[in-house]
Design a protein around this nucleic acid. Structure first.
Lengths: 348, 348
DNA sequence: AGGTACTGTGGGAGCGCTCCCAGCGGTGAT
DNA sequence: ATCACCGCTGGGAGCGCTCCCACAGTACCT
């Protein structure tokens, strides 16, 4: 690798030392000014600042990182397969939120896509070597060893979403249960009497929560959850189609469907059309995620919006806290659940 | 900022020195083994490799970067506003491609979202300080100062897309002209006699190219480009709606529309429906990008697919070349155009 | 006057590498 | 035997910072 990689060009830039010489002070003093230490007299500070400006000095992060043994960087880890699965713009939104919140920090964002176990191992090595100050983990699976590894090496980390009801690692999640519940309540409120649901893979906590919300709404309306009205799929469009067919088979009389993702709703919508049913006249349909897909469906899909960008921001805030206050490991781990919001469109 | 950022934990990991001690060799030798230098005897190499394995040694990138004055990282720069504009999954695809190609490299991916001029300046400083080995620039505007700055400081860079017909910086682009042309040829081939186009903002080269392709196809069919059949918009859905209304106003008899983006096509589709026209029976519609939106429209939208992920990969390959062979700056700058492909669906 | 207690400051040491030069023993030509 | 040269090796110097100790200077007490 590496090989002839270019150097040289970076040399020649002013260093701390040169700034110090120009300002007529010592290295330590310049460092203090740069890092905003209060123990510097105003006269000195001004002199240093002037020298910095004149020389166009920019601190060398690498040297700083080596000396201080910190990285000034956080990693955002995304399992690559997920980027295909999730309906956009989930990841862009997370990334945007993370980027925004990181902007007024001097932390860098390292993006890591994991696609093979080998790459996961490489990442693990990398993280063990403490080359970042913290880690943001997006959509981890229950069996992912990374969170525990990070816990063990005391690397600050935040998850988007929980792996289970009693998640031990700090996380930011959206209110999947509440969102699903409000979606189904909405359906029932609009007079639908036979509301089915298409769930995600039930080994994923997020899918469990959304199903849970469905059940809560159904029971709140004084009804029972009928197994025949529940079909599970895998968050894909094809899965949505299959589940919808199954549902239609079992209960041709259904008049409402809550799909646990927009993409599955899109699949369901096709099957409904094929079966000659109109949306929303015959069957009302609601999705989850409020992605681009929802807005562009025909009719536009009612869906549960998550504050995805805000999740990204919140994750960074939580991570920052973890990084700062790493000492009190015993104290409460910050965990937060962001509200969702039903966006009504013509499909219901 | 910074403040109490945690350290310490990274210490205690084995260093080059310890590996050397354990293997009974000198520091330099271990370094040579690690970096795959050929000037090491097999005996020594084996001994070192064993010591590395036993100690679980992972080289410290930061120290390496400082000593070698290279960063082992490339930056992917994305103007934040664009992430909203473009129909997904454009960015995820680029990112995925970049990530994939970077995976078998020991380069890290630094993601930088630019949202304000201030942030752009910060990035410029950062880049001037040569803290990365190369830069990937996504969807730069013609007036963006970054490419020239990079040129000046001799920082390897690659653009996705060109700023103009005579782009001087290395780039990877997709064949916008050809793609648009084949879309329009398809429309004409299907017997459409009055084909209109909705363009992007014509100060963007990509929009010019797509319009160019439209014109080429029209002329190839022995017709003239009628100004009344061209409406320009801004790549947004609302823009697509407006342009479609204008087109319908000017030429109510049109029977085909090529929209230079799927999102604009989605807007156009709504207006067509409102005006009582059926797609494709009355008006055939084709988009560009082949995004999720296209697949989920009703009817599903014929669209021009770009090899977006492949663009990401290609960008990295080109960048790597630039980084390696930076010496021969005089030689040809690698520039490549990736083919597009028409994906036929029910809208045409 | 001497002590104590600050604030500000300079600069040595050291972070973990790479680079490079000198030095080793061995080989072949003179 | 002498010299040149080779492949391989060890380790000094140095990358640009931060950390921290020591010390000057001032101020305020006894």
């Amino acid at each position: 690798m590496a090989g002839t990689r270019r150097h040289g060009a970076g040399r020649g830039r002013p260093t701390l030392e040169e700034v110090a010489a120009r300002a007529g002070v010592g290295r330590g003093t310049v460092s203090r000014v740069i890092n905003g230490s209060p123990r510097v007299s105003d006269r000195t500070r001004t002199a240093v600042e002037q020298a910095v400006a004149e020389l166009g000095y920019v601190p060398n992060r690498v040297a700083r990182a080596l000396a201080a043994n910190r990285a000034d960087a956080v990693a955002l880890v995304i399992p690559e397969p997920e980027t295909r699965l999730f309906a956009e713009p989930y990841f862009s939104d997370i990334i945007r939120g993370v980027g925004a919140e990181l902007a007024d920090t001097d932390l860098q964002l390292l993006l890591t896509l994991i696609r093979t176990p080998k790459e996961r191992q490489r990442l693990a090595d990398y993280l063990s070597a403490h080359r970042v100050d913290g880690v943001l983990l997006v959509s981890v699976h229950a069996d992912d060893p990374l969170p525990d590894l990070l816990e063990r090496i005391e690397m600050p980390a935040v998850l988007s979403g929980r792996r289970s009801a009693h998640e031990s690692v700090p996380y930011v999640d959206s209110d999947n249960t509440g969102g699903a519940q409000s979606a189904v309540e909405h359906l029932i409120g609009r007079g639908r009497s036979t509301v089915a649901t298409i769930t995600g893979p039930l080994d994923m906590y997020v899918a469990q929560c959304r199903l849970e919300g469905y059940g809560a709404a159904v029971r709140a309306a004084g009804r029972e959850v009928e197994p025949e009205l529940v079909a599970s799929a895998d968050f894909t469009e094809e899965g949505g189609r299959r589940a919808m067919r199954q549902l239609l088979d079992q209960r041709p009389d259904l008049d409402g469907v809550f799909a646990a993702s927009d993409v599955m709703a899109a699949g369901a919508r096709q099957v409904l059309r094929e079966s000659g049913r109109r949306v929303p006249d015959d069957v009302a349909l609601v999705g989850f995620e409020d992605s681009a897909v929802a807005r562009h469906m025909d009719p536009p899909l009612t869906s549960v919006r998550q504050a995805t960008e805000e999740m990204g921001r919140a994750m960074v805030r939580v991570l920052l806290e973890e990084i700062e206050g790493l000492s009190d490991r015993t104290s409460k781990r910050p965990q937060m659940v962001l509200p969702t919001q039903l966006v009504r469109r013509e499909s219901s």
